[in-house]
Write a protein that binds this DNA or RNA. Structure first.
Lengths: 208, 208
DNA sequence: CTACATTTTGACCATTCAGTCAAGTTTTTT
DNA sequence: AAAAAACTTGACTGAATGGTCAAAATGTAG
């Protein structure tokens, strides 16, 4: 969660947490420009000037929330283990990402919105940290392919495909609900979805 | 294109077209709230009051642009032919959608942004027209599966997966460019991407 | 309990921006 | 070529909103 109480006093720790939680909800629904400080302050149960006492500018809140969520997204990716079984590792990763889409759709939407609008706040991050990490995992996948343990597919595009598909269930949630109104409210929905895409993806990359 | 000259006079036909073209560019980059009428008027080369003479409210421009782009997206989907070869039909559809992502990324982004923010302007459309169309095509796919011409996969999730993956190349373009800076500028990039995802998807759904 | 630091807020300011209006200019019709 | 219709725009207005400030309230340390 938005724990992030890396601050001096007790009250600061608490209130920054409350603000960041409120801000995630608001920003992910309305985007940066579409959200107002008043909205966030309302949701956080404090006055606007009080909120600005903790985060002097709107952008500061936004960037902090965004940074907090980035780690969530990267962690499962980092855990792909070069020493594990390729299909099993990817199955685990895809399932974890789907779970994340189910549990934290706001984070996914916040991120999607940021990218969609040109990633003004995280360009650098994408070009350095993320690129490095992706390239590293792409090498792992390539290695697996070279060993004949996966079908020959472009590793980068495979990664994009996994991201696209799993995040779709958070980002396009409204569309999915419109098309499958009964199914989406039933309990096992996300498990079925995970099942379905695992079936296609894993069969698509098993060695042939 | 944004032809849409279903209007009385010559000048109206021309100017509405110019405005809609400018608006697509602006809205897809900055979202509804993030875009200003002045920006659109500037890009369209006319004064703000003049623009408002053609579209009395900001929302009118937005809705019109959105409706125009929706048709683009649905057309290839409608063309999936129940009488054709399943794998071939899906290959064609995927390739067409990728082409669309390459040629009209703004349309894709506009749509993605609308959905991401809860689809306020097209809820009804999603729940009626789109749902009907998707259910129809899902039945076609189910039929193919029953005939043993495709692997048994949930048709709806297969469709979502195709949408997610193909639109990802338009919507997350910035991220892809950050991760593959050299490749993306090379000529054959989109063909390679299409190749890669076709390979995974089609192998994932071929009968086994 | 007192002095000091931290937190909170009502009132306010400046800017941005959707939308109006009345007066001008151009195009079309007759 | 005159009249009518359609088009164009500079100058506004009012509401929303990011951010400031000074003073009040609360918490904390000695």
């Amino acid at each position: 969660m938005a724990s992030s109480s890396n601050k001096r006093t007790r009250i600061q720790g608490i209130n920054r947490g409350i603000i960041l939680e409120a801000a995630l909800e608001v920003f992910s629904n309305y985007g940066f420009r579409g959200s107002t400080i008043d909205q966030i302050a309302d949701k956080a149960g404090m006055s606007k000037p009080n909120l600005l006492y903790y985060f002097p500018r709107k952008e500061d809140i936004y960037v902090t929330v965004l940074e907090n969520t980035l780690e969530d997204w990267l962690t499962p990716f980092r855990h792909i283990d070069p020493a594990g079984d390729p299909v099993e590792e990817l199955r685990k990763y895809i399932a974890l990402k789907m779970e994340l889409s189910a549990m934290k759709p706001e984070s996914s939407r916040l991120f999607a919105n940021e990218i969609l609008h040109g990633a003004p706040a995280i360009q650098d991050f994408l070009k350095t940290n993320l690129k490095r990490l992706v390239d590293e995992k792409a090498r792992v996948i390539r290695q697996w392919i070279d060993e004949g343990r996966l079908a020959p597919v472009d590793p980068h595009h495979l990664i994009f495909m996994i991201w696209a598909t799993t995040q779709h269930y958070a980002d396009f949630d409204v569309q999915i609900r419109a098309i499958l109104p009964e199914q989406t409210v039933r309990p096992g929905f996300f498990d079925n979805a995970t099942e379905a895409i695992l079936s296609i993806l894993l069969n698509g990359i098993k060695p042939r």
